[in-house]
């Protein structure tokens, strides 16, 4: 790779400056504030504050309802990732075939990614609301007692579906690109050897797709952990009971609604450690796997 050498240090730093300022201002500064806040006990108005060390962390980690939320988040994230990856892979394989109007399908499949999470949730609400949603009414008319506002399992199912649907497009693009980069000669060789399409998929295509799949798995988990707030907030607000309260939603309820800043900050820090961990795993793995 050709390297460009600048004379002196002023210009390169100047060119880097906008990005550094943005990163510092919008990432490091708030993150630092959160870490500092997590060691304090403070009233909402910030008039009295007391340094209490790790007490907020101890409270959070020993709170059974936080641990329940953690378990729920795992179930939710795993389901969202599995569903979004499975559906996207299926669609990508279909769209990769020689079919008429493939470009149209591809474009249509990418659309949902451009829908904001809150809007996506409203779309699902209009479909599945027990009283005003078209499918909600159909389910009730068919004798299935559908009321996600009172049935926790149904609420969970709904936010999983809505969140996964949003992510299918993103996965689809990556899978499609992954599929198109698989050399045709390898597949043709397998075909000449007598492998049927399904066998070709599992023994040739899928292994060659695995770096993409792993990358997407991490991205999807991070998405389900952190970016599903809008969907949950618009559809269930964490209810009924606490049955759709994930960790990120809890950070919001405790911090913004309940004004319990110390606890909320401690929870954010725990989540930050988690996402840093996930990112490290991803980079190490992807770096190693990229030269297959």
């Amino acid at each position: 790779m050709r390297k460009v050498h600048f004379k002196g240090v002023a210009l390169p730093y100047l060119l880097l400056l906008p990005q550094l300022v943005i990163t510092g201002l919008f990432f490091f500064w708030p993150a630092g504030q959160a870490v500092w806040q997590s060691f304090l006990r403070e009233d909402a108005f910030g008039l009295s504050s007391e340094f209490i060390g790790f007490e907020n962390f101890a409270d959070v980690l020993s709170d059974p309802s936080w641990l329940e939320a953690a378990g729920r988040t795992l179930v939710f994230s795993a389901s969202v990732a599995a569903l979004a990856l499975g559906a996207a892979l299926f669609l990508a394989v279909q769209a990769d075939k020689q079919i008429r109007g493939a470009d149209t399908y591809k474009t249509l499949l990418i659309w949902p990614y451009a829908v904001a999470p809150a809007l996506a949730a409203v779309l699902w609400l209009f479909m599945f609301h027990p009283n005003i949603g078209i499918f909600g009414r159909m389910l009730n008319a068919a004798g299935i007692a559908w009321d996600y506002k009172l049935d926790g399992d149904q609420a969970m199912l709904l936010i999983i579906l809505a969140s996964a649907w949003k992510q299918v497009s993103y996965n689809f693009i990556f899978f499609l690109a992954g599929l198109q980069s698989i050399p045709k000669s390898v597949l043709e060789a397998a075909a000449i050897d007598g492998a049927r399409p399904l066998r070709r998929f599992w023994t040739v295509t899928f292994p060659l797709l695995s770096p993409t799949a792993f990358f997407l798995l991490v991205v999807n988990l991070v998405y389900a952990f952190f970016d599903t707030f809008g969907v949950i907030h618009s559809l269930t607000q964490g209810g009924p009971g606490k049955s759709t309260e994930t960790l990120i939603y809890r950070v919001y309820t405790d911090g913004v609604m309940n004004l319990n800043l110390g606890s909320s900050a401690a929870q954010s820090v725990i989540l930050m450690i988690l996402v840093i961990g996930l990112t490290i795993v991803q980079f190490r793995y992807v770096e190693r796997k990229v030269h297959y």
Binding site: L150, D151, G152, G239, P240, G241, T253, M257, N258, N260
Partner: peptide, 20 residues
């Protein structure tokens, strides 16, 4: 903290009405 207390009461009512 009454906002939070209301949410708590609503959650417990929901769980009761679910039959839990």
């Amino acid at each position: 903290g009454f906002t939070e207390i209301r949410t708590i009461m609503q959650e417990e009512m929901e769980r009761a009405l679910q039959g839990q």
